[in-house]
Simulated scan of single mutants.
Amino acid sequence: MKRHQETVEAVKKYIESNIDDAVSPDDAAKEVNYSLRQLNRIFSFSTGITVSEYIRWRKLVKSLFELKYSERPVIDIAVKFGYESQESYTRAFKENFALNPGEYRKTKQQVRAKNWHINQFIHQSAHSALNEGLFRFGNVDNWIIVKPDRIFISARRNTENLPPGKFYDICMEEGIMSKIGSLPNVITICGAYFPSKDNSGLCFGAEVEGNYPIELLREFEIIHVPQSKYVVFNYPKYPIENHGDAIYSTWHAQKKYDYTAQGLQWNLKKMPVFENDDDELGYILFFPASDMSVENESV
């Protein structure tokens, strides 16, 4: 099973590296020295879909982001992602997203496909959109709060030093998000950046009250987080394909925030940064701060 999974991951990596070219299922099979029939058996066993479906749906989702963030004509986007004509592309787009490419480009309304895999691809592409320069600025609210003593439950550390989006995708694939979500009285399921010298500071877990019953947390790493001020930056509720917009806008707003005007400074040496992507509240960044009266911290 492990060898087959490695083959599937190698095929995915090959397809992603060549998604903008005329990559085909046969190309993918040759890359790993399998016949297409053999590869489809392995790929479908591991993912539930064939190599052809993977390529077709990944290209459709990539085209969605091109429509949203570029000014390229629809026909050019259709050809780029392997459609024979604008009409065939429009049919595929409407079949999966219930509106045609022109309507989506004009309205920018949220799309949600009936196909589970396509929605997963949208989520993955939203994570990678930042690296491809696909984002736009949006409005970010901010305010100051004080968090009391908390316990952060770390279910997984980013010891591989993966990009945050990829790290969170793996946490979902490994069932870690579901495991954390089953705990009672969790305040927030989130990622947290803890001060770290070995680049393993990013953790995924949850925040609970400081007096949470420790006996319920025996299988997790427990990190006590003392009371601290936080500046909260919030990009309000948004469609998933705007994930790049939300992340970039929020972190940009944090960098531009005038801490000095509020009598504050960063407090990164002692306190973690929390981030949470909430279906109702949007993307939220909790950035630790301390009063200027405290010994200055290098930023």
Score class of each variant (00 low, 15 high):
Arg3Tyr: 15
Gln5Trp: 15
Val8Arg: 03
Glu9Asp: 12
Lys12Val: 09
Ile19Ala: 00
Lys30Gly: 01
Asn33Ile: 07
Tyr34Cys: 04
Ser35Leu: 04
Gln38Tyr: 09
Ser44Phe: 15
Ser44Pro: 11
Val51Tyr: 08
Arg56Trp: 07
Glu66Gly: 00
Tyr69Ile: 12
Tyr69Trp: 15
Tyr69Lys: 06
Arg72Tyr: 14
Arg72Val: 05
Val74Thr: 15
Val74Gly: 05
Ser85Ala: 04
Gln86Val: 03
Gln86Phe: 05
Thr90Trp: 11
Arg91Pro: 01
Lys94Pro: 02
Glu95Ile: 00
Asn96Ala: 00
Ala98Ile: 11
Gly102Asn: 11
Arg105Cys: 02
Arg105Lys: 14
Lys108Leu: 08
Gln110Leu: 05
Val111Ala: 02
Lys114Phe: 11
Lys114Tyr: 11
Lys114Gly: 12
His117Lys: 07
Asn119Glu: 00
Phe121Gly: 02
His123Val: 02
Ser128Ile: 02
Leu134Asn: 04
Phe135Ile: 04
Trp143Pro: 07
Pro148Trp: 10
Phe152Arg: 07
Ser154Asn: 05
Ala155Glu: 10
Arg157Glu: 13
Leu162Lys: 12
Leu162Val: 05
Lys166Cys: 08
Phe167Tyr: 08
Asp169Lys: 08
Ile170Arg: 15
Lys179Asn: 07
Ile180Trp: 14
Asn185Val: 04
Cys190Leu: 02
Phe194Cys: 00
Pro195Thr: 01
Pro195Cys: 03
Gly201Asp: 01
Leu202Thr: 03
Cys203Glu: 12
Phe204Ser: 02
Val208Trp: 04
Pro213Tyr: 06
Ile214Pro: 09
Leu217Asp: 14
Phe220Trp: 14
Glu221Gln: 13
Ile222Arg: 00
His224Pro: 06
Lys229Pro: 13
Asn234Thr: 03
Lys237Cys: 07
Ile240Glu: 10
Asn242Ser: 09
Asn242Phe: 14
Gly244Asn: 05
Ile247Glu: 06
Tyr248Thr: 00
Ser249Gly: 04
Trp251Leu: 06
Tyr257Trp: 14
Trp266His: 11
Trp266Glu: 14
Trp266Gln: 14
Leu268Gln: 08
Met271Cys: 08
Pro272Asn: 01
Val273Trp: 11
Phe274Asp: 01
Phe274Ser: 01
Phe274Cys: 07
Glu275Gln: 07
Asn276Trp: 13
Tyr283Ser: 04
Ser290Asp: 15
Ser290Tyr: 09
Val294Phe: 12
Val299Pro: 06
